[in-house]
C-alpha cells in the first residue's frame, strides 16, 4: 500500500456520507465502523470524522486475550476473527480512540479495516472516496507532506484566524495518518 489516510477535521461538513459509504464496503455487513460527531452543537455546527488510526502497535490487538485481532503485512488492523473472538470487549476499552464496536446480537467485535478489500489494491477506501469535502483523503505520502507544508504557509500568509467564526478554536486543523 503506497498511500496514507489524510484527515482535515476542520473541513468536515457533517454530511455522514462517510458513514453511509462505510456500510457499502464488502464484508461490512451494512454496519458502519466510523464515527462523525459534533464538537458542540450548541456552539456551532463543526463536526469531525473518526476512524481507525491503524496504529503501529495497536492497543486493541495487544489487550485481546484471544489474539483475534490480526494485522496485515501492510499494517492494517483487521476486525477480530470470528472463530477466535471470545466477546470479552477488551478491545473496545483498550483503543484510545474508541474505534472497535461490539455487536451484541452476533456477539462479535467489528472495526474499521481501512476497507482492506479496496486498499490492498490501492483503491481508495469508501469513506475517503465519497467525502464531498475532502475531509478524508487517501493520498500519496509525498502529497500529504506537501499539503501539510502548504497549509502552514497559507496560515503564515493569512494569519491564524482568517474568519470571524472562531472555527480554529474547536479542532486541530489536520493530521496525517500513516499506514506503513
Amino acid at each position: 500500500m503506497n498511500k496514507v489516510m489524510y484527515l482535515e477535521f476542520e473541513r468536515c461538513i457533517g454530511c455522514r456520507a462517510c458513514q453511509a459509504a462505510c456500510r457499502e464496503c464488502g464484508g461490512h455487513d451494512a454496519k458502519e465502523r466510523n464515527y462523525v460527531e459534533y464538537v458542540n452543537f450548541f456552539e456551532n455546527r463543526q463536526t469531525y470524522p473518526m476512524m481507525c488510526m491503524q496504529c503501529k502497535d495497536p492497543a486493541c490487538a495487544k489487550v485481546c486475550p484471544a489474539n483475534a485481532i490480526q494485522i496485515t503485512e501492510e499494517g492494517v488492523v483487521l476486525s477480530a476473527m470470528e472463530d477466535k473472538c471470545i466477546g470479552c470487549r477488551n478491545c473496545t476499552f483498550g483503543c484510545p480512540f474508541g474505534i472497535p464496536k461490539f455487536d451484541f446480537e452476533e456477539n462479535k467485535m467489528y472495526k474499521c479495516d481501512m476497507c482492506y478489500d479496496r486498499t490492498k489494491h490501492d483503491i481508495s477506501p469508501m469513506c475517503a472516496s465519497v467525502c464531498p469535502s475532502d475531509a478524508i483523503r487517501f493520498i500519496d505520502h509525498d502529497e500529504m507532506m506537501d499539503l501539510r507544508r502548504r497549509r502552514t504557509q497559507m496560515n503564515l500568509i493569512e494569519g491564524k484566524k482568517p474568519s470571524e467564526n472562531d472555527k480554529w478554536e474547536y479542532v486541530p486543523e489536520f493530521f496525517g495518518v500513516y499506514s506503513d
Partner: peptide
C-alpha cells in the same frame, strides 16, 4: 446491490453525499 464511486466523472470525482450513496 450497491454503489461504486465514479472517480473519473469530472464534476464530482467519485464524491457523493449520503443520499447519493444510498
Amino acid at each position: 446491490v450497491g454503489v461504486e464511486p465514479r472517480y473519473d466523472w469530472p464534476v464530482t470525482m467519485g464524491k457523493m453525499c449520503p443520499k447519493g450513496v444510498t
